[in-house]
């Protein structure tokens, strides 16, 4: 027998269940408990960059929106810098922009929204330009392990065409499942997205 490596094993995932709101967004469960709460609003009055709304739904295999889903997003700031010590890029850090938020879908419509800024692009370890994107993590009843996907922006066609992750998606026709569509509403940019869990338009999910 060779020497043992003795790595530990990752703890197994379990579904977040239908009552995920109790722990992560108690106000949606119908009560008030914490002094400070996390939310779907990432910006403060000081945040730099273009204010945007991300608005979307998660659709199941019957075509129905999930009305009990919870999404988290993680993104760089407008300068393309993540608020984390492992990001050593040169973009300016903003201490009061964490770059993370969580939102639950509306119990009737299934719509989830985030108020944030459009992130900047970044450069990967090989020096390749990465298009601006928001990382998304999805949990709900019936989802046994959190789903990872990304949102790219419809008005970044040139950057998207060169993005090293988008270019890994084959067949190429599936790349569009990762693009949020820009529109204007009351003078503000709204990016709309639809995440399909199954079917011919199934969203690309990543094993990260």
């Amino acid at each position: 027998m060779p020497q043992p490596l003795n790595y530990l094993k990752e703890t197994a995932s379990q579904t977040a269940g239908p009552y995920v709101h109790i722990g992560l967004i108690p106000a949606m469960a119908g009560f008030d408990i914490f002094e400070k709460n996390f939310s779907n609003v990432l910006v403060t009055p000081n945040t730099q960059g273009e204010r945007i709304t991300l608005e979307g739904k998660v659709i199941d295999g019957s075509g129905s929106p999930l009305r009990d889903v919870l999404l988290e997003i993680w993104q760089a700031n407008a300068a393309g810098r993540y608020n984390h010590p492992a990001d050593r890029s040169a973009g300016a850090l903003e201490q009061d922009f964490r770059g993370w938020g969580r939102g639950g879908s509306d119990f009737e419509s299934g719509v989830v929204t985030f108020e944030t800024v459009k992130p900047g692009g970044m450069t990967d370890k090989s020096g390749r330009k990465c298009a601006p994107h928001v990382n998304v993590w999805i949990v709900a009843r019936g989802i046994n392990i959190g789903l990872n996907t990304r949102l790219y922006f419809s008005d970044e066609e040139v950057a998207n065409a060169a993005d090293p992750v988008l270019n890994l998606v084959e067949p190429a026709v599936r790349r569009k499942t990762l693009i949020a569509t820009r529109s204007e509403r009351a003078g503000k940019a709204v990016y709309s997205f639809t995440i399909h869990l199954q079917g011919p338009e199934e969203t690309v999910f990543f094993d990260v």
Binding site: S89, G142, F205
Partner: peptide
């Protein structure tokens, strides 16, 4: 009805 059926796309961890 809530399980993806396509293979997950494996990507190298980036920043």
């Amino acid at each position: 009805l809530r399980s993806p059926r396509q293979a997950l796309l494996s990507i190298e961890n980036s920043v």
